[in-house]
């Protein structure tokens, strides 16, 4: 039914619409299966919630996240301030809501940098093999052998603290696993008959890699990236905690824990609220990643 109507309506762009229909069917089928698994559904729910909160932050937040009200500082949770207030009297709930934007910003930026770089390096090195593979993989090894947070620290120290620099630092440490994964997938695909067939049609290596190999690696890379997001959130929070990520007065979750640390014993909500937010979101990405793997893995 669906196929017929779509095809009839757009006779000129038949192949695109057919592709869209295929994608749509996959999505519908996929979301059915996601909902089948309660853990994945929960993960998806939290991630969707994060997106909505970030998008509608001004409407959801009850206060201005930056407005200080010293007379009202360090108030425990109440109906006026749901998660209490911090040492400057700022509303923690509103800061968490706005902080979700920063978290999402970091995740998106890192993913946009890391995904393509990892995919390109992995597929190129797997497809060509030989010297190219050796060079690329040794570079990857070097990046893998540094502890992530230490390398990020070094970069931020060199570039100066700031959100963008933190993003670059995190991106630099998180592309190697993606490259490794893409290479391993490519090594398996390289000898596949359909790749040999397109070689025999005279396709250039670039064309083969980007049109034929990359789409096959994409699903496992997406799964890996989703799982990575949990790590990214934690590293970003870690950098924020050390004062090297987002700078005051930005309501970044890690930085919030860091400043709340000094008041932690008497005023637990300063640390508990952002801590719970970090935990919840990174757990949600892990659950979603697991579910996506079950869904996208061609071996299933």
């Amino acid at each position: 039914m669906m196929t017929n109507s779509t095809m009839a309506s757009s006779a000129t762009s038949k192949s695109t619409s057919a592709g869209m229909v295929m994608l749509l069917q996959m999505l519908v089928h996929g979301s059915k299966r996601i909902i089948h698994n309660p853990l994945t559904a929960a993960g998806l729910f939290v991630v969707m919630l994060l997106l909505i909160v970030a998008m509608f932050a001004p409407w959801i937040a009850t206060h201005n996240p930056l407005a200080q009200e010293l007379s009202n500082s360090l108030q425990p949770p109440s109906s006026e301030h749901w998660f209490g207030t911090d040492e400057f009297g700022r509303d923690i709930f509103s800061r968490l809501v706005y902080g979700s934007r920063i978290t999402l910003y970091i995740i998106t930026l890192v993913t946009v940098i890391v995904g393509p770089i990892g995919l390109a390096i992995g597929t190129i090195s797997g497809y060509f093999g030989g010297v190219i593979d050796t060079i690329f993989m040794r570079i990857t090894d070097i990046f893998i052998s540094f502890p992530g947070l230490v390398l990020a620290l070094a970069f931020v120290a060199a570039l100066g603290p700031g959100l963008e620099h933190a993003v670059i630092a995190i991106a630099l440490t998180s592309w190697p696993p993606i490259a490794r994964l893409a290479r391993a997938e490519t090594l398996q695909l390289r000898k596949a008959d359909y790749i040999v067939a397109v070689q025999l049609q005279g396709a250039s290596s670039t064309r083969i890699i980007f049109r034929h190999i990359v789409p096959m690696c994409l699903s496992s890379v997406i799964v890996r990236l989703t799982m990575n997001m949990a790590g990214i959130i934690l590293t970003a929070a870690g950098l924020g905690f050390l004062g090297l990520g987002a700078q005051a007065p930005l309501p970044e979750w890690g930085a919030m824990i860091s400043t709340g640390r000094s008041y932690m014993l008497e005023h637990w909500w300063l640390v508990a609220a952002p801590g719970a937010a970090i935990m919840l979101v990174s757990l949600a990405f892990n659950l979603l990643g697991d579910g996506l793997r079950d869904l996208l893995d061609p071996r299933n």
Binding site: S15, A18, G19, D193, Y194, V196, A197, V198, H212, M216
Partner: peptide, 13 residues
């Protein structure tokens, strides 16, 4: 090719 299941790209119409 021999194997009709392996010689067509699974993601291409």
């Amino acid at each position: 090719f021999q194997d009709p299941y392996g010689s067509l790209h699974p993601r291409h119409s």
